[in-house]
Design a protein around this nucleic acid. Structure first.
Lengths: 120, 120
DNA sequence: AGTACCCTCAACCATATGGTTGATCATTCG
DNA sequence: CGAATGATCAACCATATGGTTGAGGGTACT
């Protein structure tokens, strides 16, 4: 019997990471997140810089919200959005699992570059 | 005139980051990457743990390849795949722009939790 | 030569994604 | 009250995504 559960070392597929990475994969959404880093803002405020419709941005915001990256606080008719850090931290933790790998590779790269310079 | 170019502090939309995040947003592809962390492998070897067709995996590999996360070396009839570190490092660098933010927020969260405990 | 093996290609399918628009709901303001 | 504002909803559209299958192209084994 083939073991389908251990394709590497990821225990469970981790749907939260799916949503975080998926949400951040869109440049508009990354820009929204970048804007929100400066502090909370309403949907209209967040939408202003973008050339797409308000509702277009609204949909992006909902994706970010489902990923837990953005928190919405309805205050009267305004929806105040703020950046939530946890998913970013989780992503960073996941990435840390590869830090050792890329540092190794980078050492190797540096060695290669040193050789290339010598032969240049 | 509205400035559409500075929606935050992202200079250019950065299509490379789009591809990296998009590639990693899929659990199968993350599992492939995780497997490749141990060292190079052929497409069939990479595909073995997954319940989908070989070509299904092959298509995932191509996505990873276009994102620069995987390098392919055709050796006879076998395609040897290896993990490339640069996109992961670039992602880490991008994330670092938020490290300060989430550390702040985490401090705030801890304070709030302390208050919640007291009021519980 | 002939067969088995590794992998990709072409075509197809279902669903998800990113975008639009007009209508609608709720709230604030004159 | 009535009008403007902030945001969502419903419907729609085009394209991308993740999966399948059968066929085919090279490469290796005997």
């Amino acid at each position: 019997m083939v073991d389908h559960s251990a394709a590497g070392s990821d225990r469970k597929p981790d749907a939260a990471l799916d949503r975080t990475l998926g949400a951040l994969a869109d440049p508009t959404r990354r820009a929204i997140v970048a804007g929100l880093r400066r502090g909370p803002a309403t949907v209209s405020e967040v939408a202003r810089p973008f050339p797409i419709s308000l509702y277009g941005v609204s949909k992006h915001v909902r994706v970010l919200e489902r990923a837990g990256l953005v928190h919405r606080e309805v205050r009267g008719r305004e929806h105040h959005l703020s950046l939530r850090a946890e998913p970013l931290r989780a992503l960073s933790d996941w990435l840390d699992g590869y830090a050792a790998f890329w540092e190794e590779r980078l050492d190797a790269l540096e060695r290669e570059l040193a050789e290339d310079r010598r032969g240049d």
